[in-house]
Design a protein around this nucleic acid. Sequence first.
DNA 1: AATCATAATATGCCTAGACATATTCAGAAA
DNA 2: TTTCTGAATATGTCTAGGCATATTATGATT
Lengths: 234, 234
Amino acid sequence: MPRYREIYESLRQKIVLGQWPPGHRLPSEHELARSFGCARMTIGKALGALADQRLVTRRRRAGTVVNAPRPQESVLEIHDIEAELLAAGVSYAYQSLERRVRRANAADAAALGVPPGTPVLALTGLHRAGGQPHALEERLINLQAVPEARAERFADISPGRWLLQRIPWTEAEHQIAALNADAAIARRLAIRRNTACLTIERNTWRDEQRITHVRVIYPCDQHRLVARFRYGAA
Amino acid sequence: MPRYREIYESLRQKIVLGQWPPGHRLPSEHELARSFGCARMTIGKALGALADQRLVTRRRRAGTVVNAPRPQESVLEIHDIEAELLAAGVSYAYQSLERRVRRANAADAAALGVPPGTPVLALTGLHRAGGQPHALEERLINLQAVPEARAERFADISPGRWLLQRIPWTEAEHQIAALNADAAIARRLAIRRNTACLTIERNTWRDEQRITHVRVIYPCDQHRLVARFRYGAA
DNA sequence: AATCATAATATGCCTAGACATATTCAGAAA
DNA sequence: TTTCTGAATATGTCTAGGCATATTATGATT
């Protein structure tokens, strides 16, 4: 284990075990360098890592101070449906239900964040796992940003995959919510009306330009999201 | 802007805009140091930041290689209910519905991950916003890990807050799912039976020891989780 | 007592070099 | 041809110094 990591762990222990409570000011880099017997830059690297983890706040002249624990913040992984199912040994298929090129109506414009009238590709499709419906996907693609999508049929290739491999994106936003399945959703997912579903909406940007909007709907017993967080870990 | 950050941004652009596609090998640190006119350590810092963001992979002798874009991975912030509502200018209150000290039954043991028979504190409470029910909380606290909770009434202080301020935790896991409200949930949240609800389950550890398990249930129109992600950003 | 300029201090960033180590590549041996 | 061995190479880490800059503490002035 490199020296800076040893120092990082040593300091982290003091914080996590409460020996240095929130608000406590750490010794200066010079002092730590002396006590650990290393160069100041090595201490700087260790303290920088603590700051990256939000365990401490560093300000010039003010020094390095232990933070209060964050309320909740976690790394969420939203997996690729296809890859996930294949990894679990379940067969996967994407089935296109609807494909339409149109000028954005008011709803499209709001969802995708483009002016009404912009050409969009609207896709509805079903992700199947082991033959059974697994998730329903409703997607809008901004044809101004991705003109080559106009020529693609998306008959059995998931548009998510297709986009991911072609279009670099720079920003994404997810919204996670619950909804009661209406008649149309229930029919397509082969579930009873009013069944609770988990929805994930995702908006994707490439440098200010909106690429796609997608809403994926999972029946409540088919999917849960898992997020794991280690306080102050790498 | 510091030099290493300029270099980071410059390299990031090349990757994000597709100029350097996945698999492309970056020039060596020595070459970059020469072309940017700086010390190798400064380049190392920039490349290290790119690696932290998972934009590149670095291996000795093999060099620094551009990664394929991640499928989806995002930073999820699960906010403190109380702080969130207060920030929105809505009055907040916690109301205890049930408080019981018992030896863990099979369900408790499974949820909290402790052996059956372990003393636990089981709490049910309601978060109210503007007088109206906002979320239902079901919580188990491991009294072996947090003995001081036995003396606390939790009549109007949210146990989440109480714990957060007292007990340092080192690891947490969230599970997000949807469910149909059953009769008991519907009554307490003053919603109709079968209304879709978003649930967040959270398990918290302190160095291997389980501290608490909590399930928070939000009616579908009361809450959505938002996660935002900038590809390769700080 | 209050305000303001100044000095002290801790971090932020940088350089130029060094040795360590993992990995690859090329050439030698089987 | 295959396998093995050693050299080359790129990163990983570290040192010992330096200047820059934000912030605080101090002391002087009003």
